[in-house]
Nucleic acid binder design. Structure first.
Length: 439
RNA sequence: GCGGUCAUAGCUCAGUUGGUUAGAGCACAAGAUUGUGAAUCUUGGGGUCGCGGGUUCGAGUCCCGUUGGCCGCCCCA
């Protein structure tokens, strides 16, 4: 046993694990670019106050925070939202709208480890600033869905639950509840799925038992699973705010349907997301089997940029965590068998042949091909075995017979065929075989 | 922060009521094998049995503590 262990909850990525992680990041990055999002990055270490300002003092117990040598209170970032709000807020007047940004970054939270949760993890974050209409949600929800679909996940595997905090407040207001009571009811709604009726205990403690008919109406609202049902309920109540909100819902779902994504989106007002800073649509992605914690979550936070010292700027964003997502891919057998294999493996006779081979090896490597060879002289049989195990597509055979003829034998390790090419043509020959197969 | 459970080789594990020098498979390395692919055979390197203390003539085994993993609760930005 080594004397030094990694810290609890921290992960080490051996090459095969890193290859899988890189694959996730590569696909996310490519997808975000396809949606016109630009990548940014920012410091891992931030002033502690940035998180206090957003989430309150109690957040500190869940942070990796300390005092640096300059006496500053600092914390490893537990999320990207405050940081990106600051970045955008500082340059808001000069950035072209809409501002569509994404990042792939590592985060740290001082928490107890659990399935799908550790003390360090990565998130894909995407945010859209400067658009207050549901067009912003359309882009983000579509991006979220595509970020999962790109791995082969389908509507059989996951879905996005869509809810709306504004709608809840307008609804509860229409039912005659004031703001404080409405917030308490929303807190109960947030916990209702897990606790059932007990979720309303906190409300009862604060304001007395919730009127039975009101509670029925709240629970009925939770039952709504379609736009049609939502429309029926809202039109019955009437009122301008609800009508305007309904129009937003229609637009958002209409656009997502036009994109062919309707089957991925479920109207579900049970999603509230406890965070106080969400101001409109909120959404979370779950696996259909319901075995895992949320895969992704996000929503609109129109007040946060201003709260963190920037100008008033509407915003919508979401994040996908890598741990639960990797579990889902694994469960569905969609983790690609990625090996960091060379493209070409050289089989080399002896020291004399090695000199000739080295010249070609370097030429091929300089041209960008992944080329490997045995560091020390080995029997041919072992070299062919090593070539096969390396995962290379091609073996180049530098034997005395070939070099005497001025050729190199190219063996296709998959097809188990081989042919000779003049040494001078080796780069072109390799390129011809491998081009089009590389990603 | 709380509870349950586990810890023996790189991996999966065996190890009897406490008893000689702690084992197997896989993996890794060398050889059989100096020109063609996951085979076979032989051999080898690898362990302070998580760590610390206790009981005992004797502890991988029993007891206590501790660290760490896994699972759940709280929380989940």
């Amino acid at each position: 046993m080594p004397s030094f262990q990694s810290l609890p909850g921290f992960r080490e990525f051996y090459p095969d694990a890193l290859a899988r992680r890189n694959h996730l990041f590569r696909v996310w990055r490519q997808t975000a670019r396809a949606f016109g999002f630009q990548e940014y990055d920012a410091p891992v270490l931030e002033p502690l106050d940035l998180y206090r300002a957003k989430s309150g003092d109690e957040i500190e117990t869940q942070l990796f925070s300390f005092i640096d040598k300059g006496g500053r209170e600092v914390a490893l970032r537990p999320e990207m939202t405050p940081t990106v709000c600051r970045l955008v807020g500082e340059k808001a007047s000069t950035l072209k709208r809409p501002i569509k940004w994404f990042s792939i970054a590592e985060f740290f939270r001082y928490e107890r480890m659990q399935k799908g949760r550790g003390r360090c993890f990565h998130q894909f974050n995407a945010d859209l600033f400067g658009e207050s209409g549901p067009e912003a949600e359309t882009e983000l929800i579509a991006l979220l869905i595509q970020c999962l679909r790109a791995f082969g996940l389908t509507e059989q595997d996951f879905f996005v639950r869509l809810s709306d905090r504004n709608l809840w407040f307008y609804y509860l207001e229409a039912l005659g509840l004031d703001k404080l009571r409405a917030q308490a009811v929303l807190g109960a709604v947030d916990k209702f799925e897990k606790l059932g009726d007990d979720a309303f205990k906190t409300y009862a403690g604060q304001f007395g038992p919730l009127d039975a008919s009101l509670k029925d109406k709240v629970l009925a609202f939770l039952e709504i699973k379609s736009l049609a049902a939502l429309e029926a309920t809202l039109t019955a109540l009437g009122g301008e705010k609800l009508a305007a909100r309904l129009a937003d819902w229609k637009k958002l779902l209409g656009h997502l349907t036009a994109m062919g994504l309707a089957d991925y989106v479920q109207v579900d007002l049970g999603v509230v997301r406890g965070l106080a800073y969400y101001t409109g649509f909120v959404f979370e992605a779950f696996d259909r089997k319901g075995e895992l914690r949320a895969i992704a979550g996000g929503g609109r936070y129109d007040d946060l940029v201003e709260k963190l010292g920037g100008p008033a700027l509407p915003a919508v964003g979401f994040a996908i965590g890598d741990m639960t997502f990797a579990l889902l891919l694994e469960q569905r057998g969609l983790t690609p068998a990625l090996v960091s294999a060379p493209e070409v493996y050289c089989v080399i006779g002896g020291e004399a042949e090695r000199r000739a081979a080295f010249s070609d090896i370097h030429t091929l490597r300089a041209a960008g091909f992944a080329v490997d060879y045995p560091l020390k002289e080995l029997a041919f049989g072992k070299q062919f075995k090593a070539a096969a195990e390396s995962g290379a597509r091609l073996a180049l055979i530098y034997g005395g017979d070939e070099l005497a003829k001025g050729v190199v034998k190219i063996r296709d390790l998959t097809a188990r065929t081989e042919h000779e090419v003049p040494r001078a043509d080796i780069l072109a020959a390799v390129r011809d075989t491998l081009t089009g197969e590389r990603t």
